[in-house]
Simulated assay, not measured.
Amino acid sequence: MRDNHRFRLADGVELVDQQDDSFKMQISIPSDDNGFLGRQCPECALIFRMDAEQYKALPEDLTLWCVYCGHHAEHSEFITEQQRERVMRAVGDFAMQRVSRELDKTFRGLARRSRGGAISFSSKSRPFSPRPLPGIDEEQLIRVRTCASCHNRYAVFSDHRYCPVCGQLPAPSVAFDALLADAARLDALEALAPEVKAPLREQGVFTRNWVDTVENVVGTVEALASALFQATVPNANALLVGKGGIFQRLDPMADLLITAGYPDLRAALGPQTWQRLLETWAARHVFTHNDGIVDEKYLTRVPASSARVGQRLVLTEDMCRRALDDAKSLCQALVDVLR
C-alpha cells in the first residue's frame, strides 16, 4: 500500500500529479504469463492480445486497429472490461479520500464558527484502507501471430483480417491463416472423445464440416487470386471486364493469367495436383448449387468418379485434408506467379 501525497493508494497505483480540480494517476495493468496485454475493440467488443513490451514501445499517439472488424481509434479506447474495472477501483478509492478530506475541512470550519452559539459540530475521520486492485484473468493466447509488415506480435481468438498496428493484412497472410483455421477445425473434431463424436456424427456435424471446408477452400483461393491479380496486373480492370466470378473457376483463371503475361499455374503445380483441385472445385459446385446431388457437369469434370447422376456426393476427412494441402500449394503458386 502506498501513501502517495498523503493519500493511501493500493499497490499498483501512483499519484503523479494533483491540482485543485484535476489529478493524474498511473495504474499498472499486468500482462499475462506470456507477456501479452489484452485489448478490446470498442465497436465489436471482441478481445485480442498484444506483446506488452512491444506495446510499450509504440508511439503515445498510436491508433490501434481491431483485428476482427477493422475499427480503428486512439489506443486508450481499447481498454478491456477487466482493465476498466481495475482503473475504476483505483480512481474510486482516491476520489473517496478526496471527498472525505473536503468534508473534514468543512466540518472543522463549522465547528469553529459555532462556538458562541447553541449549535456545535464535531467530526472524526477514520483511516482509509484502499481495496486491492482486481486482477486480470482474461482469455489466454493459443497461438501468436507476427505481422509480416511491422513485426508486432499479437494473438487472436477468431477469424481476423487486420494487424492491430498497421491495419489491413496482406492477402497471402489472410489466405494461409484461413487454411490453417480449417485444418485446426478438422483436428478439433477428430480429437473429441468417442462418446462425444458419436452423437455429433449422427447429427451430420462431421459431414457439414467437410462440406464447409471444401467451400472455404474455394472461397479462400478466389479471394487471394482476385486481390493479387488486381494489385499486380497493370491492366487488371480491362482484363476482367465481362469475366465475373472468373477466380472461382480454375482453368479460366489459369488462362487469364497467361493472357496477362504470367506463367501457367497448371504447369507450376503439375497435372495430378491440378486434377485434384478440379475435383475439389467440382465438389464445391454441387454442394453449393445442388445440395451435393451429382449432375452431368460434375461427371464431366470428374470423369473417374464412380457416382451416377442423381446420387449425393459423399465427402471424407481425407478428401478435405488433401484439398487443404492442394489449396496451400495453389495459393503459394499464385503468390510466386503474381510477384
Rank of each mutant, 00 (worst) to 15 (best):
R208W: 08
E202K: 07
T207L: 09
P199Y: 08
P164L: 03
K124Q: 12
V218T: 07
V156W: 02
C163Y: 00
R113L: 06
M96A: 06
F157A: 03
D177P: 00
E215R: 02
N216C: 02
E102T: 09
T146L: 00
E195T: 11
Q97N: 06
G116F: 11
Y162A: 04
Y162T: 15
P127K: 04
V99N: 05
R98G: 03
Q140A: 12
A198M: 08
V156A: 12
R108T: 15
D137V: 12
A175P: 09
P134R: 13
G135I: 01
L141T: 13
P199K: 09
L200W: 13
P164I: 05
F121V: 12
N152I: 10
H151A: 02
N209Q: 06
G117C: 10
S114I: 11
F128D: 02
R143M: 05
C166N: 11
H151F: 01
P170E: 15
D182M: 07
M96P: 03
R153I: 02
N209I: 10
V144R: 15
D182I: 01
A178T: 05
V144P: 04
K105W: 10
P194L: 10
R112V: 15
C147R: 01
K197S: 14
V144A: 08
D187V: 11
R101C: 10
S129Q: 05
